[in-house]
Design a protein around this nucleic acid. Structure first.
Length: 829
DNA sequence: AGCACGCCGACT
DNA sequence: GTCGGCGTGCTC
């Protein structure tokens, strides 16, 4: 029976491939007033009519057979939370990134506003014992649990935990049919404050010895007490992992009263308690003023232009951003400022807060769901004019967007590693053209892609060549470590660097030492048989971590005690090779016993507030030498730092990735830029095994132009981005042979299609399949195919990937294999 | 995802 | 015979 209905076309909030399509629901007459396009609604879904949240993408009148459709249950919102423009963007994203609808939607709307269905069970017939046959064991068990818990309404999960069988679902349903129990649905908000559990020692340090004697043989309990004595308050799960134990021993020491556990709200917000210091307005230099004027003009004209501000480190890009934001606000518009990672760029964020105070929303990774939602609401209700945040802030729902600023544009953190694998600059460009906003890309070392765009004219280039306040760029000295070795120095510090560090200590100046490897040694190998200790889940060599004497896998986090004999041949010639920040720290301690040393890497900053703590004491001069990884390369501005030592960049340089040289150049420039920020000229010592490499030579001269010329030539030669677009298709699975065979099969199928489309030089277009650079992660073997759009059309390649792995996934992708597609990947590994 | 259906082996 | 385990398929 066909008749006319009002139909809502919705996307259900269920992240799976099978449900990644539009579903039609009838809007019942009584809801037609309340429901419009862009709203969220509750719909019954699937056989069990599970209640799901759904997003309405379209509303239509249709002639359909009403009996084959379900009705919308209720509206969640009072008005649309997705604008017409945003719905278009979701469709665009799905096609561009080959992601699911719901994944695109969740970029725009924070999750977890309404709880997914929760079944609540209510016992209504107290006299059930007379009605249930004695043989119905399951039914009885469930009812007994309900009764034991004092009647009332119980969530289904509680019952599942209490009874010792699965499949309680049908039993529940039967009981409900008998009207002995009642099933209710709870859709209440589940926004909770995120908490973490901490353990704290309850006895004094002196008393610990006595307590340990009292514990006698309880080894694990003693370990816990010692650990807490050394480390202070500690997050329990992290501690238990560290000590390789479980809750048992912990519970024992808690019951004996030696340790206390406490729940604490996760609130790593680095700005929650910091007072806002107003930052003096600097007078722009003529160079800066010119940039400000030109961009202000575009802002007034509402032109969707993109500017690349290429300014050497310390050239005052932040001041330009501040002025442009002022301009935008004075026009009644709003702005987004993206930074690579909020906790690593506190100084930039503070300057914005100092200038604009309360009208700012901060979006960062450690907000709880609730806090994120609150900020999101504030933004969408127009209560803020400026949003500062990392990558995802580019989606901030500002209604009158005037400008999007992407600071440190070249940073890899702007590319999402999860679906949808977008780059913040791509989203910014899209919003720019659709909302009439100006995009500003800022960097001392622009990405090749962006700089190339200024050459072909789609992006305007603005160059800042001077540092204001007379400070000069630091001098960079390259030290050839091969020669150092030939001359008998086997250490990781060159003689030159040692001398300079010593001098700096005498002169009460501060030093930064940069090493891109954390841990103690970078790999463990046996001199006898050459065996290298690798993680048992991943194809990654394990890194030694002290003082726990653990080997750690930096990919999956697996730990084991470091072996004293070779696990392969049993000889005792096991060696710890390569140096990480921990070993560097130890060496520096030995070389300069009077120096105060700080270390900053993922391991030393895992506890909350430790970032700010280390940087604070460095600023106050309580640390002479700061050792760190990538983390110290960004945005730090300490005037008393005159020496920067770059221990090695060879690992980055030799990355199996066409961006290796670019990443190296960026790294050197960013790290070197930490020196000589004050009045005195800075000096950078750059140690390398390959001093003649062009990215080392050009970086040491601060010559981006020459680096660019050299690198762009190579990219053109080998047809790499920006001259081509890449799609990387990654396959993974538990069985190596199966994944390899599947990758081979799919490569052949793609080749066949390419051939059919008249594609020439197919072996240049499809690379692989190859084992991924990291061939195994978490017990899954990985293979890769790369598609490159030379001699062919990018949309054809995307179309092929979409056909096999998205649209006809069921047919072409077996359940045992996971496929992940990345268009224009940043990381080739 | 998560539920229902359906097929097959173990047990009253 | 029947219960319950898991493989397969569908969700407006």
């Amino acid at each position: 029976m066909q008749s006319n209905y009002i139909i809502a076309q919705v996307i259900v909030d269920q992240n799976s491939h099978q449900t990644d399509r539009i579903f039609d629901y009838i809007i019942p007459a009584h809801l037609q007033q309340d429901i419009c396009k862009g709203m969220r609604v509750v719909v019954p879904f699937g056989k069990g009519n599970k209640r799901l949240e759904a997003y309405i993408l379209n509303i239509d009148k249709k002639k359909i057979d009403g009996s084959r459709y379900k009705e919308i249950i209720e509206a969640i919102d009072y008005e649309a939370i997705l604008s017409e423009e945003q719905i278009k963007m979701i469709l665009w994203m799905k096609n561009k990134y080959l992601c699911k609808y719901i994944e695109a939607i969740h970029c725009l709307i924070p999750t977890g506003i309404v709880q997914k269905e929760r079944k609540m069970i209510n016992l209504i017939d107290q006299n059930w014992r007379t009605r249930i046959a004695p043989s119905q064991n399951k039914q009885r068990a469930i009812l007994e649990v309900l009764e034991a818990q004092g009647g009332g309404t119980q969530p289904l999960e509680n019952l599942e935990k209490e009874v010792n069988f699965k499949e309680i679902y049908s039993t529940i349903k039967n009981l409900a049919a008998e009207k002995i129990i009642e099933i209710q649905y709870d859709l209440s908000s589940r926004i909770k404050v995120k908490t973490e559990e901490y353990a704290e020692l309850k006895v004094s340090h002196e008393a610990v010895e006595g307590v340990l004697l009292q514990l006698k043989g309880a080894k694990k309990q003693a370990e816990i007490l010692n650990f807490l004595k050394d480390m202070g308050r500690y997050q329990t799960t992290a501690m238990l992992k560290e000590l390789k134990t479980t809750r048992g021993p912990l519970k024992a020491v808690v019951e004996k009263g030696f340790v206390e556990l406490m729940e604490e709200e996760i609130h790593r917000d680095p700005f929650a308690n910091s007072e806002v210091t107003s930052f003096p307005k600097l007078n722009p230099t003529p160079e800066q003023q010119q940039v400000i004027d030109e961009i202000s003009f575009a802002l007034q004209e509402n032109k969707p232009e993109t500017y690349l501000i290429h300014g050497i480190t310390g050239s005052g890009k932040t001041e330009i951003y501040l002025r442009l934001i002022e301009e935008v606000i004075s026009q009644g518009k709003q702005g987004i400022v993206l930074v690579p990672e909020i906790s690593l760029t506190p100084q930039t964020v503070e300057r914005f807060r100092g200038r604009f105070g309360e009208g700012i929303a901060l979006l960062h990774s450690s907000l709880s769901e609730g806090e994120r939602y609150d900020e999101w609401r504030r933004i969408s209700e127009g209560k803020v004019n400026i949003v500062i945040g990392a990558r995802s802030a580019v989606f901030a729902p500002l209604k009158n967007l005037g400008i999007i600023i992407i600071d440190e544009e070249h940073e890899y953190t702007y590319k999402s590693e999860q679906n949808p694998k977008y780059h913040a600059a791509e989203i910014a460009a899209y919003r720019s053209t659709h909302e009439g906003a100006v995009v500003i890309l800022g960097s001392a070392t622009p990405s090749l892609e962006s700089y190339y765009k200024t050459e072909v004219g789609t992006v305007h280039l603005m160059t800042l060549k001077k540092r204001p306040q007379q400070s000069k760029l630091p001098k960079v000295e390259v030290v050839d470590m091969k020669r150092e070795l030939e001359e008998g120095n086997q250490g990781i510090l060159s003689r030159r660097l040692m001398t300079l560090v010593n001098e700096n200590l005498k002169n009460k100046k501060q030093t930064i030492l940069f090493l891109n490897r954390r841990g103690f040694s970078t790999f463990v190998s046996c001199k006898g048989c050459g065996h290298v200790v690798k993680c048992q889940h991943c194809d990654i060599s394990m890194t030694l971590h002290m003082p726990q004497n653990h080997l750690k896998c930096h990919y999956c986090g697996e730990r084991q005690f470091s072996p004293s004999v070779c696990p392969e041949c049993g000889s005792e010639t096991i060696k710890f090779m390569g140096a990480g920040t921990q070993r560097l720290e130890k060496m520096i301690e030995e070389l300069f016993p009077t120096a105060k040393i700080g270390r900053m890497d993922v391991d030393s900053t895992s506890q909350k507030g430790s970032h700010a703590k280390i940087l604070g004491s460095f600023r106050r001069g309580e640390i002479d030498i700061l050792i760190g990884t990538q983390m110290i390369s960004k945005g730090l501005d300490f005037p008393n730092v005159t020496l920067v030592g770059i221990i090695s960049v060879d690992a980055t340089l030799n990355l199996p990735d066409f961006r290796g040289a670019e990443k190296t150049f960026q790294l050197i420039t960013q790290v070197a830029g930490r020196a000589g920020r004050g009045m005195e000229e800075g000096l950078v010592i750059l140690q390398t095994l390959d001093p003649n490499h062009y990215s080392i030579r050009t970086a040491s001269r601060h010559d981006y132009g020459d680096f660019y010329k050299e690198e762009i030539m190579i990219r053109r030669e080998f047809e790499y981005p920006p001259f081509t677009n890449l799609i990387s298709i990654n396959f993974s699975g538990k069985k190596e042979n199966e994944v390899a065979a599947y990758a081979e099969k799919m490569a052949n199928m793609i080749k066949y299609v390419l051939q059919g489309k008249g594609c020439i030089k197919i072996n240049d277009v499809l690379l692989g399949p190859n084992e991924s650079v990291i061939s195994r992660i978490n017990q899954r073997y990985r293979f890769q195919i790369i598609l490159k759009d030379q001699h062919t059309d990018f949309s054809l390649l995307k179309g092929i990937a979409k056909y096999f792995f998205i649209q006809h996934r069921e047919k072409y992708v077996p359940k045992s294999i996971a496929v992940s597609i990345d268009t224009n990947p940043y990381n080739m590994m």
